[in-house]
Design a protein around this nucleic acid. Structure first.
Lengths: 250, 250
DNA sequence: GTAAAAATTGACAGAGCGTCAATAATTGAC
DNA sequence: GTCAATTATTGACGCTCTGTCAATTTTTAC
Protein backbone atom coordinates (compact mmCIF):
# COMPACT_ATOMS: atom_id res chain seq x y z
CA UNK A 1 0.00 0.00 0.00
CA UNK A 2 2.43 2.59 1.25
CA UNK A 3 5.36 3.39 -1.03
CA UNK A 4 8.56 3.53 0.95
CA UNK A 5 11.58 5.42 -0.22
CA UNK A 6 14.99 3.82 0.02
CA UNK A 7 15.76 6.03 2.99
CA UNK A 8 12.62 4.99 4.79
CA UNK A 9 13.46 1.36 4.22
CA UNK A 10 16.94 1.96 5.56
CA UNK A 11 15.52 3.50 8.71
CA UNK A 12 13.10 0.69 9.24
CA UNK A 13 15.92 -1.77 8.72
CA UNK A 14 17.96 0.01 11.36
CA UNK A 15 15.11 -0.09 13.82
CA UNK A 16 15.20 -3.85 13.49
CA UNK A 17 18.98 -3.79 13.83
CA UNK A 18 18.71 -1.85 17.09
CA UNK A 19 16.42 -4.51 18.47
CA UNK A 20 18.80 -7.22 17.31
CA UNK A 21 21.65 -5.54 19.15
CA UNK A 22 19.65 -4.71 22.27
CA UNK A 23 18.14 -8.15 22.80
CA UNK A 24 21.24 -10.06 23.92
CA UNK A 25 22.33 -7.18 26.13
CA UNK A 26 18.98 -7.17 27.90
CA UNK A 27 18.83 -10.96 28.17
CA UNK A 28 22.36 -11.59 29.27
CA UNK A 29 23.21 -8.52 31.33
CA UNK A 30 19.88 -7.08 32.37
CA UNK A 31 18.17 -3.76 32.03
CA UNK A 32 20.88 -1.66 33.64
CA UNK A 33 23.39 -2.87 31.08
CA UNK A 34 21.14 -1.82 28.23
CA UNK A 35 22.12 1.80 27.68
CA UNK A 36 21.56 3.99 24.67
CA UNK A 37 25.26 4.84 24.60
CA UNK A 38 26.18 1.21 24.41
CA UNK A 39 23.72 0.36 21.67
CA UNK A 40 24.94 3.37 19.70
CA UNK A 41 28.58 2.45 20.16
CA UNK A 42 27.98 -1.15 19.17
CA UNK A 43 26.20 -0.03 16.01
CA UNK A 44 28.68 2.75 15.27
CA UNK A 45 26.02 5.43 15.31
CA UNK A 46 25.71 8.50 17.46
CA UNK A 47 23.43 8.30 20.45
CA UNK A 48 21.08 10.86 18.97
CA UNK A 49 20.35 8.56 16.06
CA UNK A 50 19.18 5.82 18.36
CA UNK A 51 16.96 8.36 20.09
CA UNK A 52 15.40 9.04 16.68
CA UNK A 53 14.16 5.47 16.65
CA UNK A 54 13.20 5.03 20.30
CA UNK A 55 12.55 7.84 22.77
CA UNK A 56 14.13 5.79 25.59
CA UNK A 57 15.36 2.34 26.27
CA UNK A 58 12.08 1.26 27.82
CA UNK A 59 10.49 1.50 24.40
CA UNK A 60 13.16 -0.79 23.05
CA UNK A 61 12.27 -3.31 25.71
CA UNK A 62 8.58 -3.04 24.92
CA UNK A 63 9.25 -3.42 21.22
CA UNK A 64 11.18 -6.60 21.94
CA UNK A 65 8.34 -7.82 24.14
CA UNK A 66 5.84 -7.14 21.40
CA UNK A 67 7.85 -9.29 19.01
CA UNK A 68 7.87 -12.01 21.61
CA UNK A 69 4.13 -11.83 22.14
CA UNK A 70 3.49 -12.08 18.43
CA UNK A 71 5.33 -15.38 18.47
CA UNK A 72 3.21 -16.54 21.37
CA UNK A 73 0.05 -15.60 19.56
CA UNK A 74 1.18 -17.43 16.45
CA UNK A 75 1.73 -20.58 18.50
CA UNK A 76 -1.71 -20.22 20.09
CA UNK A 77 -3.24 -19.76 16.68
CA UNK A 78 -1.64 -22.93 15.36
CA UNK A 79 -2.84 -24.84 18.40
CA UNK A 80 -6.39 -23.53 18.15
CA UNK A 81 -6.99 -24.66 14.58
CA UNK A 82 -6.06 -28.30 15.01
CA UNK A 83 -8.85 -30.48 13.64
CA UNK A 84 -9.87 -32.11 16.91
CA UNK A 85 -12.45 -31.59 19.64
CA UNK A 86 -12.60 -28.29 21.50
CA UNK A 87 -11.28 -29.79 24.70
CA UNK A 88 -8.37 -31.32 22.84
CA UNK A 89 -7.62 -28.05 21.12
CA UNK A 90 -7.50 -26.54 24.57
CA UNK A 91 -4.92 -29.13 25.50
CA UNK A 92 -2.90 -28.00 22.49
CA UNK A 93 -3.02 -24.41 23.73
CA UNK A 94 -1.48 -25.73 26.91
CA UNK A 95 1.22 -27.36 24.84
CA UNK A 96 1.79 -24.08 23.05
CA UNK A 97 2.35 -22.41 26.41
CA UNK A 98 4.79 -25.11 27.41
CA UNK A 99 6.62 -24.87 24.12
CA UNK A 100 6.87 -21.11 24.43
CA UNK A 101 8.35 -21.17 27.93
CA UNK A 102 10.67 -24.05 27.23
CA UNK A 103 11.85 -23.62 23.68
CA UNK A 104 11.36 -19.91 23.13
CA UNK A 105 13.20 -19.10 26.31
CA UNK A 106 14.50 -15.74 25.17
CA UNK A 107 11.09 -14.55 24.06
CA UNK A 108 9.50 -15.76 27.28
CA UNK A 109 12.14 -13.94 29.28
CA UNK A 110 11.73 -10.73 27.30
CA UNK A 111 7.96 -10.91 27.72
CA UNK A 112 8.33 -10.76 31.48
CA UNK A 113 9.76 -7.27 31.30
CA UNK A 114 6.44 -5.70 30.37
CA UNK A 115 5.17 -6.51 33.85
CA UNK A 116 7.79 -4.19 35.33
CA UNK A 117 5.97 -1.08 36.36
CA UNK A 118 8.73 1.35 35.47
CA UNK A 119 8.99 -0.01 31.94
CA UNK A 120 5.29 -0.18 31.30
CA UNK A 121 4.50 3.25 32.70
CA UNK A 122 7.23 4.96 30.76
CA UNK A 123 6.28 3.68 27.35
CA UNK A 124 4.01 5.33 24.83
CA UNK A 125 0.29 4.73 24.74
CA UNK A 126 0.60 3.48 21.16
CA UNK A 127 2.98 0.70 22.01
CA UNK A 128 1.00 -0.21 25.11
CA UNK A 129 -2.02 -0.56 22.88
CA UNK A 130 -0.18 -2.94 20.51
CA UNK A 131 0.71 -5.17 23.41
CA UNK A 132 -2.72 -5.09 24.98
CA UNK A 133 -4.23 -5.97 21.64
CA UNK A 134 -1.88 -8.91 21.21
CA UNK A 135 -2.65 -10.13 24.71
CA UNK A 136 -6.35 -9.76 24.11
CA UNK A 137 -5.87 -11.69 20.86
CA UNK A 138 -4.38 -14.61 22.76
CA UNK A 139 -7.20 -14.50 25.27
CA UNK A 140 -9.77 -14.28 22.52
CA UNK A 141 -8.38 -17.40 20.85
CA UNK A 142 -8.85 -19.33 24.06
CA UNK A 143 -12.27 -17.83 24.74
CA UNK A 144 -13.24 -18.89 21.23
CA UNK A 145 -12.39 -22.47 22.09
CA UNK A 146 -14.57 -22.26 25.18
CA UNK A 147 -17.44 -20.97 23.10
CA UNK A 148 -16.84 -23.77 20.60
CA UNK A 149 -17.06 -26.21 23.47
CA UNK A 150 -20.38 -24.76 24.58
CA UNK A 151 -21.74 -24.65 21.04
CA UNK A 152 -20.84 -28.26 20.38
CA UNK A 153 -22.42 -29.32 23.63
CA UNK A 154 -19.17 -30.64 25.08
CA UNK A 155 -19.09 -27.94 27.71
CA UNK A 156 -22.18 -27.13 29.78
CA UNK A 157 -22.85 -23.41 29.64
CA UNK A 158 -23.49 -21.06 32.52
CA UNK A 159 -27.26 -21.03 32.19
CA UNK A 160 -27.47 -24.53 30.81
CA UNK A 161 -28.77 -27.67 32.44
CA UNK A 162 -25.66 -28.71 34.36
CA UNK A 163 -25.26 -26.68 37.54
CA UNK A 164 -21.82 -28.17 38.17
CA UNK A 165 -20.07 -24.89 37.61
CA UNK A 166 -20.96 -21.25 37.53
CA UNK A 167 -18.57 -19.44 35.25
CA UNK A 168 -18.77 -17.50 32.03
CA UNK A 169 -16.45 -18.50 29.16
CA UNK A 170 -14.15 -15.60 29.94
CA UNK A 171 -13.98 -16.61 33.58
CA UNK A 172 -12.94 -20.12 32.60
CA UNK A 173 -10.23 -18.63 30.42
CA UNK A 174 -9.18 -16.53 33.38
CA UNK A 175 -8.78 -19.66 35.47
CA UNK A 176 -6.71 -21.52 32.92
CA UNK A 177 -4.71 -18.40 32.20
CA UNK A 178 -4.04 -17.84 35.89
CA UNK A 179 -2.85 -21.33 36.58
CA UNK A 180 -0.63 -21.47 33.52
CA UNK A 181 0.75 -18.01 34.03
CA UNK A 182 1.19 -18.53 37.76
CA UNK A 183 3.06 -21.80 37.28
CA UNK A 184 5.34 -20.29 34.70
CA UNK A 185 6.23 -17.31 36.82
CA UNK A 186 6.75 -19.41 39.92
CA UNK A 187 8.84 -21.91 37.96
CA UNK A 188 11.02 -19.24 36.46
CA UNK A 189 11.42 -17.04 39.51
CA UNK A 190 11.63 -19.65 42.23
CA UNK A 191 14.70 -21.81 41.65
CA UNK A 192 13.96 -23.54 44.93
CA UNK A 193 10.86 -25.23 43.54
CA UNK A 194 12.45 -28.70 43.37
CA UNK A 195 13.77 -28.19 46.89
CA UNK A 196 10.19 -27.53 47.98
CA UNK A 197 9.09 -30.85 46.54
CA UNK A 198 7.81 -29.81 43.12
CA UNK A 199 9.90 -32.01 40.91
CA UNK A 200 8.16 -31.65 37.58
CA UNK A 201 6.17 -28.41 37.40
CA UNK A 202 5.15 -29.06 33.81
CA UNK A 203 3.51 -32.35 34.63
CA UNK A 204 1.89 -30.77 37.69
CA UNK A 205 0.48 -27.97 35.62
CA UNK A 206 -0.90 -30.43 33.08
CA UNK A 207 -2.65 -32.27 35.88
CA UNK A 208 -4.05 -29.06 37.31
CA UNK A 209 -5.40 -27.98 33.95
CA UNK A 210 -6.97 -31.39 33.47
CA UNK A 211 -8.55 -31.14 36.91
CA UNK A 212 -9.93 -27.72 36.12
CA UNK A 213 -11.29 -28.76 32.73
CA UNK A 214 -12.89 -31.88 34.20
CA UNK A 215 -14.34 -29.67 36.92
CA UNK A 216 -15.90 -27.42 34.29
CA UNK A 217 -17.57 -30.55 32.96
CA UNK A 218 -15.84 -30.23 29.61
CA UNK A 219 -16.30 -33.52 27.76
CA UNK A 220 -14.63 -35.80 27.12
CA UNK A 221 -13.88 -36.03 30.85
CA UNK A 222 -10.42 -37.50 31.24
CA UNK A 223 -8.97 -39.50 34.11
CA UNK A 224 -5.61 -37.88 34.84
CA UNK A 225 -3.59 -40.78 33.50
CA UNK A 226 -5.44 -40.90 30.21
CA UNK A 227 -5.14 -37.14 29.92
CA UNK A 228 -1.39 -37.20 30.39
CA UNK A 229 -1.03 -39.87 27.72
CA UNK A 230 -3.22 -37.94 25.32
CA UNK A 231 -1.19 -34.78 25.85
CA UNK A 232 1.97 -36.69 24.98
CA UNK A 233 0.31 -37.90 21.80
CA UNK A 234 -0.65 -34.39 20.77
CA UNK A 235 2.77 -33.11 21.62
CA UNK A 236 4.20 -35.25 18.84
CA UNK A 237 1.72 -33.87 16.35
CA UNK A 238 2.05 -30.20 17.14
CA UNK A 239 5.73 -30.00 17.99
CA UNK A 240 6.87 -29.82 14.35
CA UNK A 241 4.31 -27.12 13.70
CA UNK A 242 5.53 -25.10 16.64
CA UNK A 243 9.11 -25.50 15.52
CA UNK A 244 8.25 -24.25 12.05
CA UNK A 245 6.49 -21.22 13.49
CA UNK A 246 9.44 -20.45 15.71
CA UNK A 247 11.81 -20.74 12.73
CA UNK A 248 9.68 -18.43 10.59
CA UNK A 249 9.48 -15.88 13.35
CA UNK A 250 13.23 -15.25 13.44
CA UNK B 1 19.40 -11.42 75.32
CA UNK B 2 21.66 -8.89 73.64
CA UNK B 3 22.21 -5.67 75.56
CA UNK B 4 21.77 -2.71 73.27
CA UNK B 5 23.30 0.65 74.03
CA UNK B 6 21.25 3.78 73.62
CA UNK B 7 23.13 4.50 70.41
CA UNK B 8 22.40 1.08 68.97
CA UNK B 9 18.74 1.50 69.73
CA UNK B 10 18.81 4.88 68.06
CA UNK B 11 20.32 3.37 64.94
CA UNK B 12 17.79 0.58 64.83
CA UNK B 13 15.06 3.10 65.30
CA UNK B 14 16.38 5.12 62.39
CA UNK B 15 16.48 2.07 60.15
CA UNK B 16 12.77 1.74 60.75
CA UNK B 17 12.33 5.44 60.14
CA UNK B 18 14.07 5.16 56.78
CA UNK B 19 11.64 2.44 55.76
CA UNK B 20 8.73 4.56 56.97
CA UNK B 21 9.90 7.44 54.80
CA UNK B 22 10.78 5.31 51.77
CA UNK B 23 7.53 3.35 51.62
CA UNK B 24 5.17 6.10 50.44
CA UNK B 25 7.73 7.35 47.94
CA UNK B 26 8.05 3.90 46.41
CA UNK B 27 4.30 3.28 46.44
CA UNK B 28 3.16 6.61 45.15
CA UNK B 29 5.95 7.64 42.80
CA UNK B 30 7.73 4.45 41.90
CA UNK B 31 11.26 3.18 42.11
CA UNK B 32 12.87 5.99 40.15
CA UNK B 33 11.54 8.53 42.61
CA UNK B 34 13.04 6.67 45.53
CA UNK B 35 16.55 8.14 45.74
CA UNK B 36 18.96 8.10 48.61
CA UNK B 37 19.32 11.88 48.36
CA UNK B 38 15.62 12.34 48.75
CA UNK B 39 15.29 10.01 51.71
CA UNK B 40 18.24 11.76 53.35
CA UNK B 41 16.83 15.22 52.72
CA UNK B 42 13.41 14.27 54.02
CA UNK B 43 14.96 12.89 57.21
CA UNK B 44 17.45 15.74 57.53
CA UNK B 45 20.44 13.43 57.47
CA UNK B 46 23.39 13.33 55.12
CA UNK B 47 23.27 10.80 52.34
CA UNK B 48 26.22 8.91 53.76
CA UNK B 49 24.21 8.15 56.89
CA UNK B 50 21.49 6.48 54.89
CA UNK B 51 24.18 4.44 53.15
CA UNK B 52 25.29 3.25 56.58
CA UNK B 53 21.92 1.59 56.97
CA UNK B 54 21.37 0.29 53.45
CA UNK B 55 24.07 -0.22 50.81
CA UNK B 56 21.66 0.87 48.07
CA UNK B 57 18.03 1.60 47.57
CA UNK B 58 17.29 -1.90 46.33
CA UNK B 59 17.96 -3.18 49.84
CA UNK B 60 15.43 -0.70 51.16
CA UNK B 61 12.87 -2.11 48.78
CA UNK B 62 13.68 -5.66 49.80
CA UNK B 63 13.47 -4.75 53.46
CA UNK B 64 10.01 -3.27 52.85
CA UNK B 65 9.03 -6.41 50.97
CA UNK B 66 10.21 -8.59 53.82
CA UNK B 67 8.00 -6.66 56.23
CA UNK B 68 5.12 -7.18 53.85
CA UNK B 69 5.75 -10.91 53.57
CA UNK B 70 5.83 -11.26 57.33
CA UNK B 71 2.35 -9.83 57.43
CA UNK B 72 1.26 -12.31 54.80
CA UNK B 73 2.72 -15.18 56.76
CA UNK B 74 0.98 -14.02 59.92
CA UNK B 75 -2.35 -14.01 58.10
CA UNK B 76 -1.70 -17.50 56.74
CA UNK B 77 -0.80 -18.69 60.20
CA UNK B 78 -4.03 -17.36 61.65
CA UNK B 79 -5.99 -19.03 58.88
CA UNK B 80 -4.24 -22.36 59.26
CA UNK B 81 -5.04 -22.79 62.97
CA UNK B 82 -8.79 -22.33 62.76
CA UNK B 83 -10.51 -25.22 64.50
CA UNK B 84 -12.22 -26.70 61.47
CA UNK B 85 -11.59 -29.44 58.91
CA UNK B 86 -8.43 -29.35 56.82
CA UNK B 87 -10.31 -28.47 53.66
CA UNK B 88 -12.04 -25.63 55.41
CA UNK B 89 -8.77 -24.34 56.80
CA UNK B 90 -7.55 -24.35 53.23
CA UNK B 91 -10.50 -22.16 52.33
CA UNK B 92 -9.40 -19.80 55.08
CA UNK B 93 -5.93 -19.60 53.56
CA UNK B 94 -7.64 -18.50 50.39
CA UNK B 95 -9.45 -15.84 52.39
CA UNK B 96 -6.14 -14.74 53.85
CA UNK B 97 -4.79 -14.27 50.34
CA UNK B 98 -7.83 -12.27 49.37
CA UNK B 99 -7.59 -10.16 52.50
CA UNK B 100 -3.94 -9.49 51.85
CA UNK B 101 -4.44 -8.32 48.27
CA UNK B 102 -7.52 -6.30 49.03
CA UNK B 103 -6.99 -4.79 52.44
CA UNK B 104 -3.22 -4.79 52.71
CA UNK B 105 -2.87 -3.14 49.36
CA UNK B 106 0.35 -1.36 50.13
CA UNK B 107 2.04 -4.51 51.39
CA UNK B 108 0.83 -6.48 48.40
CA UNK B 109 2.15 -3.82 46.07
CA UNK B 110 5.51 -3.68 47.81
CA UNK B 111 5.78 -7.44 47.68
CA UNK B 112 5.61 -7.35 43.90
CA UNK B 113 8.88 -5.51 43.69
CA UNK B 114 10.93 -8.51 44.73
CA UNK B 115 10.03 -10.15 41.42
CA UNK B 116 11.90 -7.40 39.58
CA UNK B 117 15.14 -8.90 38.43
CA UNK B 118 17.25 -5.79 38.94
CA UNK B 119 16.12 -5.44 42.55
CA UNK B 120 16.46 -9.08 43.45
CA UNK B 121 19.86 -9.55 41.85
CA UNK B 122 21.34 -6.49 43.46
CA UNK B 123 20.42 -7.31 47.01
CA UNK B 124 22.52 -9.16 49.53
CA UNK B 125 22.41 -12.91 49.94
CA UNK B 126 21.40 -12.48 53.57
CA UNK B 127 18.27 -10.53 52.79
CA UNK B 128 17.41 -12.84 49.91
CA UNK B 129 17.61 -15.71 52.37
CA UNK B 130 15.19 -13.99 54.78
CA UNK B 131 12.67 -13.60 52.02
CA UNK B 132 13.07 -17.12 50.69
CA UNK B 133 12.62 -18.43 54.20
CA UNK B 134 9.46 -16.43 54.70
CA UNK B 135 8.08 -17.63 51.37
CA UNK B 136 8.96 -21.21 52.20
CA UNK B 137 7.23 -20.70 55.56
CA UNK B 138 4.01 -19.72 53.80
CA UNK B 139 4.30 -22.70 51.51
CA UNK B 140 5.02 -25.00 54.42
CA UNK B 141 1.89 -23.84 56.23
CA UNK B 142 -0.20 -24.80 53.24
CA UNK B 143 1.65 -28.07 52.69
CA UNK B 144 0.98 -28.87 56.35
CA UNK B 145 -2.73 -28.50 55.71
CA UNK B 146 -2.49 -30.89 52.79
CA UNK B 147 -0.71 -33.42 54.97
CA UNK B 148 -3.37 -32.94 57.65
CA UNK B 149 -5.96 -33.68 55.01
CA UNK B 150 -4.23 -36.89 54.03
CA UNK B 151 -3.69 -37.93 57.65
CA UNK B 152 -7.32 -37.39 58.55
CA UNK B 153 -8.42 -39.37 55.51
CA UNK B 154 -10.24 -36.43 53.94
CA UNK B 155 -7.75 -36.24 51.09
CA UNK B 156 -6.74 -39.40 49.21
CA UNK B 157 -2.97 -39.65 49.06
CA UNK B 158 -0.78 -40.25 46.04
CA UNK B 159 -0.33 -43.95 46.68
CA UNK B 160 -3.68 -44.40 48.31
CA UNK B 161 -6.78 -46.12 47.08
CA UNK B 162 -8.30 -43.32 45.03
CA UNK B 163 -6.57 -43.01 41.66
CA UNK B 164 -8.47 -39.81 40.92
CA UNK B 165 -5.36 -37.70 41.09
CA UNK B 166 -1.64 -38.17 40.91
CA UNK B 167 0.03 -35.41 42.84
CA UNK B 168 2.23 -35.13 45.89
CA UNK B 169 1.16 -32.71 48.66
CA UNK B 170 3.72 -30.18 47.46
CA UNK B 171 2.43 -30.41 43.92
CA UNK B 172 -1.10 -29.69 45.12
CA UNK B 173 0.21 -26.67 46.96
CA UNK B 174 1.95 -25.64 43.77
CA UNK B 175 -1.36 -25.77 41.91
CA UNK B 176 -3.26 -23.71 44.46
CA UNK B 177 -0.35 -21.32 44.76
CA UNK B 178 -0.15 -20.90 41.00
CA UNK B 179 -3.80 -20.17 40.50
CA UNK B 180 -3.99 -17.74 43.40
CA UNK B 181 -0.76 -16.02 42.51
CA UNK B 182 -1.61 -15.97 38.81
CA UNK B 183 -5.03 -14.44 39.41
CA UNK B 184 -3.60 -11.79 41.69
CA UNK B 185 -0.91 -10.75 39.27
CA UNK B 186 -3.28 -10.73 36.32
CA UNK B 187 -5.87 -8.79 38.31
CA UNK B 188 -3.38 -6.21 39.43
CA UNK B 189 -1.47 -5.80 36.18
CA UNK B 190 -4.27 -6.13 33.68
CA UNK B 191 -6.72 -3.29 34.20
CA UNK B 192 -8.58 -4.50 31.13
CA UNK B 193 -9.81 -7.64 32.87
CA UNK B 194 -13.40 -6.44 33.22
CA UNK B 195 -13.30 -5.37 29.58
CA UNK B 196 -12.32 -8.92 28.70
CA UNK B 197 -15.36 -10.27 30.50
CA UNK B 198 -13.95 -11.13 33.90
CA UNK B 199 -16.20 -9.10 36.14
CA UNK B 200 -15.41 -10.53 39.54
CA UNK B 201 -11.95 -12.09 39.61
CA UNK B 202 -12.21 -12.90 43.31
CA UNK B 203 -15.34 -14.96 42.87
CA UNK B 204 -13.80 -16.65 39.83
CA UNK B 205 -10.71 -17.54 41.78
CA UNK B 206 -12.80 -18.98 44.59
CA UNK B 207 -14.63 -21.15 42.10
CA UNK B 208 -11.39 -22.31 40.53
CA UNK B 209 -9.89 -23.24 43.88
CA UNK B 210 -13.05 -25.14 44.74
CA UNK B 211 -12.88 -26.98 41.43
CA UNK B 212 -9.26 -27.88 42.02
CA UNK B 213 -9.88 -29.06 45.59
CA UNK B 214 -12.87 -31.12 44.50
CA UNK B 215 -10.72 -32.54 41.73
CA UNK B 216 -8.12 -33.58 44.27
CA UNK B 217 -10.90 -35.50 45.97
CA UNK B 218 -10.56 -33.45 49.13
CA UNK B 219 -13.61 -34.14 51.30
CA UNK B 220 -16.05 -32.70 51.99
CA UNK B 221 -16.64 -32.28 48.26
CA UNK B 222 -18.54 -29.06 47.72
CA UNK B 223 -20.89 -28.10 44.93
CA UNK B 224 -19.75 -24.67 43.82
CA UNK B 225 -22.77 -22.87 45.21
CA UNK B 226 -22.43 -24.44 48.63
CA UNK B 227 -18.72 -23.69 48.61
CA UNK B 228 -19.26 -20.02 47.85
CA UNK B 229 -21.77 -19.75 50.69
CA UNK B 230 -19.42 -21.50 53.10
CA UNK B 231 -16.58 -19.18 52.16
CA UNK B 232 -18.78 -16.19 52.92
CA UNK B 233 -19.56 -17.70 56.32
CA UNK B 234 -15.91 -18.16 57.12
CA UNK B 235 -15.11 -14.70 55.91
CA UNK B 236 -17.20 -13.29 58.74
CA UNK B 237 -15.36 -15.39 61.30
CA UNK B 238 -11.82 -14.71 60.20
CA UNK B 239 -12.13 -11.11 59.06
CA UNK B 240 -11.84 -9.64 62.58
CA UNK B 241 -8.80 -11.83 63.20
CA UNK B 242 -7.18 -10.63 60.03
CA UNK B 243 -7.94 -7.03 60.90
CA UNK B 244 -6.36 -7.46 64.32
CA UNK B 245 -3.23 -8.93 62.77
CA UNK B 246 -2.99 -6.13 60.28
CA UNK B 247 -3.36 -3.58 63.07
CA UNK B 248 -0.66 -5.21 65.18
CA UNK B 249 1.71 -5.34 62.25
CA UNK B 250 1.84 -1.57 61.83
C1' DG C 1 39.39 14.17 81.26
C1' DT C 2 41.09 11.96 77.42
C1' DA C 3 42.22 8.77 73.84
C1' DA C 4 40.30 5.34 70.90
C1' DA C 5 36.38 3.87 68.37
C1' DA C 6 32.30 4.77 65.93
C1' DA C 7 29.20 7.56 63.40
C1' DT C 8 28.24 11.48 60.44
C1' DT C 9 29.00 14.55 56.80
C1' DG C 10 28.99 16.40 52.13
C1' DA C 11 32.11 17.15 48.34
C1' DC C 12 33.38 14.46 44.51
C1' DA C 13 34.10 11.32 40.56
C1' DG C 14 31.68 8.49 37.48
C1' DA C 15 27.82 7.09 34.56
C1' DG C 16 23.62 7.37 32.10
C1' DC C 17 19.85 10.19 30.39
C1' DG C 18 17.77 13.07 27.15
C1' DT C 19 18.36 17.61 24.51
C1' DC C 20 19.57 20.53 20.87
C1' DA C 21 22.21 23.57 17.98
C1' DA C 22 25.28 22.65 14.44
C1' DT C 23 26.34 19.92 10.55
C1' DA C 24 25.59 16.63 6.84
C1' DA C 25 22.84 14.14 3.61
C1' DT C 26 18.82 13.71 0.73
C1' DT C 27 15.14 15.25 -2.04
C1' DG C 28 12.65 17.49 -5.61
C1' DA C 29 11.80 21.62 -8.43
C1' DC C 30 13.66 23.88 -12.12
C1' DG D 1 23.18 19.56 -12.84
C1' DT D 2 22.17 23.07 -9.33
C1' DC D 3 20.39 24.73 -5.30
C1' DA D 4 17.15 25.60 -1.72
C1' DA D 5 14.28 23.09 1.43
C1' DT D 6 13.69 19.22 4.00
C1' DT D 7 15.24 15.57 6.72
C1' DA D 8 18.66 12.95 9.31
C1' DT D 9 22.87 12.68 12.10
C1' DT D 10 26.04 14.06 15.42
C1' DG D 11 28.22 14.55 19.91
C1' DA D 12 28.96 17.96 23.45
C1' DC D 13 26.29 19.57 27.27
C1' DG D 14 23.52 20.02 31.48
C1' DC D 15 21.24 17.36 34.67
C1' DT D 16 20.38 13.75 38.07
C1' DC D 17 21.60 9.89 40.71
C1' DT D 18 24.97 6.77 42.49
C1' DG D 19 28.26 5.20 45.73
C1' DT D 20 32.80 6.51 48.05
C1' DC D 21 35.83 8.43 51.37
C1' DA D 22 38.70 11.67 53.86
C1' DA D 23 37.66 14.95 57.18
C1' DT D 24 35.01 16.04 61.16
C1' DT D 25 32.01 15.28 65.03
C1' DT D 26 30.08 12.36 68.54
C1' DT D 27 30.21 8.50 71.60
C1' DT D 28 32.34 5.19 74.44
C1' DA D 29 35.48 3.24 77.74
C1' DC D 30 38.79 3.77 80.97
Amino acid sequence: MVELTRKQREIEQRTREILRVAKPILLREGLHALTMDRVAAQMQYAKGTIYNHFPHKEEIVLALAFDAMRLRRALFQAAAVEDISSRERMMCIGLACEYYTQHCREEFQVEQWIRHANIWDKSSAARQECIRECEAGCMELVAGLVRDGIQSGDLPSLDGDSPGHALSPEEMVFGLWSITFGSQILSSSSPSLPALGVMDPIRSTRVHCCTLLNGFGWRPIYPVDAYLLRVEQFAETVLPKFQAIQRDHA
